[in-house]
Design a protein around this nucleic acid. Structure first.
Lengths: 218, 218
DNA sequence: CTGGATCCATGATGATACTG
DNA sequence: CAGTATCATCATGGATCCAG
């Protein structure tokens, strides 16, 4: 199988970018690597519906393009895929795409549709960043479905990382991704535990509902 | 032929957005409509390599998605395609994609590669916006290969429109797109005529070369 | 001449099963 | 765990043709 070298042959930066990341699934692979390195099967889990053939092909193409690298260590079975600096620079592309999708192509969770916490958190953070005037620092530790996520802002830029915080967070949220949807869209605390200083918890509660206010349900 | 309903079935704003605009050519159609309404054959010209079948299919899909509308007037042969407000909201997506492409996937113009002035201008404006600290207003009128373009900034946001300015511009640049490439990348004035107040012309000259400084040639 | 539609060839993707 | 092999299907490209 040779590299998919389908090009547009336009003298245009947008076309050049799409030649690298415009194939089906490519940007979703990058989306899932933005929160940290993942193994092949981690990606298979999150990219519900992709076939192993397509995933390995995309990873190889992204590697060739200098967007992804594969960490292989002798004596270890696992291969960890992570973004290169050029790959990490695609963050704003995913960000603007998600922001548009949130406002113009949203749909309520469908029956049987996989619900991954980090996809939800990515959209929530994007909505807070672009639709509120909150620009203070924040560190929120989510423990959802048994996995840890750290959402933090330095006052300018937000990030979501799939790991437990090394230093204590302002707010710790424990529960399921499903229950977090209910908190965001209905303000319901059912199945969610929120801990932290009263002021920080209050700020979190105010901000986390932002996503519900910008969605244009289809 | 039925609508291409291929979905990802992820509960994720990025995936939802890609279901609407992730098909091959879709974002390039939108790129070319960002500078103003175009006819079918205008788009065929700019989207070098697309087949009429694919273009009409994409336009129909984007229409169904509420991103594009077709203006048909009785007694007029032409159909003018333009972006809806939701379509215009994709501007930042094209912008970040082009900005990434400029830095990480640039390539010098290839022999026989079509060179369209508006694609060049879009990238130049993006580079000036993100790589300089120039945030004053500007109005530049380009007349390239016989077509008019207005690039303007209100001090916050840049835009490129494929039309002659209604009010006088600060600077008027006349020549070919090919010669503009030489100006940007080599500082060469050959084949380019620049008119305007000395201060405005000087600012233009300083800024227009920005693109050359951020490119990472492949 | 614009705005497509049609036919066929090819190549990309999907489904399923299987392996080092 | 990290893929590959095989087969089926569907989207896209190339060329051509046609209606208003």
């Amino acid at each position: 199988m040779t590299r998919n070298v389908r090009t547009y042959d336009h003298f245009c930066a947008v076309a050049r970018a799409l030649e690298q990341v415009g194939d089906r699934w490519s940007l979703l692979v990058i989306r899932d690597l933005l929160t940290g390195a993942k193994r092949f099967t981690d990606l298979m889990d999150r990219l519900g519906g992709i076939t192993p053939k397509t995933l390995s092909q995309r990873l190889r193409e992204l590697d060739d393009a200098g967007i992804v690298t594969a960490d292989r260590e002798p004596g270890r079975r696992e291969v960890w895929y992570r973004l290169t600096p050029a790959g990490a620079d695609l963050g704003p592309v995913i960000g603007t795409l998600g922001w548009w999708g949130l406002r113009h192509a949203w749909r309520w969770p469908q029956a049987g549709e996989p619900l991954h916490a980090e996809h939800l958190l990515g959209a929530a953070i994007q909505a807070i960043d672009l639709a509120t005037d909150h620009h203070g620092p924040a560190r929120w530790h989510f423990r959802l479905d048994g996995a840890d996520y750290l959402a933090e802002s330095d006052g300018h830029e937000w990030s979501v990382t799939a790991k437990a915080p090394s230093a204590p967070a302002d707010v710790t949220i424990t529960g399921t991704a499903q229950a977090l949807v209910a908190l965001i869209f209905a303000g319901s605390d059912l199945g969610i535990d929120i801990k932290g200083e009263p002021g920080a918890v209050e700020r979190f509660r105010q901000l986390i509902g932002t996503m519900a206010t910008v969605v244009h349900p289809a």
